[in-house]
């Protein structure tokens, strides 16, 4: 068994005159959950479609479970479960009937079809609607049918393109729980615009921009790497001008943003230079100046900050 679930090397995809992917290289280990992040047009969906063997590529090498997606396309397709952004459903079919058809189409042995369908229905919480016609279901349920379709043949690799798009927050949370439940059974690649979702589910994040990889690491490491670093927020009773001057004089301060409040209080956001921790020296300064604080709080960079930083148009 190949240790790597996905191997992508120097992947280039050109559409008529447009370079969708420009030399993409990454790997995904078995059991990993990889999140693909990037603005619209970054090449996330194209990458996923290439991994599923649905579209060819211009140059490079792509392997899934050791199989080439072009030469061994059928072997690859047997091993993947794919849920595109627009979930492709035969809306005139009933849920159970559709999943049975898909299981048989994906080569599940006839004796096991029923069990696999029931399993997928249970995992995706579709029990109450299994006899309903798909076209009459809400968007949320239809997305779940799409996920059940992707997992019905118990694939090694699950590829989910924007799986929670169109969900309300409660549905999205339930969907995240479902995907978390699948973690033990499948390697998962998912793309999403909801960064908190990626942060919560994925063991590794790959940030894409204009067909290239801008960063690839765990979300924690990415946050550490972010140029914006971390910041301190404090609320102090002090004269604003004097406070700002004193804080700016501290070594390691990037910027100070004051905001006067009522009754002599002042809120300040203090940006630290990369790798600096100024909490102690700020505390000492306040004590020495006898400026009483009522809040001193560290604000960590979020994945959203990293995303904005990495994918910003002005970035060189």
């Amino acid at each position: 068994m190949c240790a790597l679930m996905v191997e992508v090397r120097d992947l280039v995809k050109n559409y008529a005159g447009v370079k969708a992917l420009r030399g993409l290289s990454f790997t995904v280990d078995r059991g990993e959950i990889l999140g693909l992040l990037g603005p619209n047009g970054a090449g996330k969906s194209t990458t996923m479609r290439i991994l599923t063997s649905y579209i060819p590529f211009t140059s490079g090498e792509v392997r899934v479970a050791g199989y080439c997606v072009i030469r061994d396309s059928l072997e690859v397709r047997r091993r993947i479960g794919y849920m595109p952004e627009q979930v492709p459903l035969y809306k005139e079919m009933r849920v159970e009937e559709f999943l049975t058809f898909r299981a048989r189409l994906k080569g599940v042995r006839p004796r096991r079809v029923r069990a696999r369908v029931e399993d997928a229905i249970a995992l995706c919480h579709l029990g109450d609607v299994s006899r309903r016609i798909i076209g009459t279901l809400s968007k949320g349920f239809q997305q779940r049918v799409g996920l059940a379709d992707a997992i019905v043949h118990q694939p090694e690799l699950l590829i989910l393109d924007e799986p929670t798009i169109g969900f309300d927050p409660a549905q999205a949370r339930q969907f995240r729980e479902t995907i978390r439940g699948l973690r033990s059974r499948h390697t998962i690649i998912l793309s999403s615009h909801i960064l908190s979702e990626v942060e919560a589910i994925c063991s590794r994040v790959l940030i894409m921009r204009k067909g290239r990889i801008e960063a690839s690491d765990t979300s924690e490491n990415l946050k550490r790497l972010a140029a914006s670093g971390s910041s301190l927020r404090l609320e102090v009773k002090a004269p604003v001008e004097e406070l700002v001057q004193a804080l700016r004089a501290l070594p390691g301060v990037e910027d100070v943003e004051p905001q006067p409040m009522s009754e002599g209080w002042c809120s300040v956001t203090l940006l630290e230079q990369r790798g600096m921790d100024l909490a102690a020296s700020v505390g000492e300064l306040l004590i020495s100046k006898r400026w009483p604080p009522r809040l001193l709080n560290r604000q960590q960079a979020t994945l959203e900050d990293v995303f904005v930083e990495m994918t910003h148009e002005d970035r060189a």
Partner: peptide
């Protein structure tokens, strides 16, 4: 309907 993508990403020629 877009179901062609679903059909062609299943292991069928």
């Amino acid at each position: 309907l877009g179901t062609f993508e679903g059909l062609m990403t299943a292991p069928v020629t």
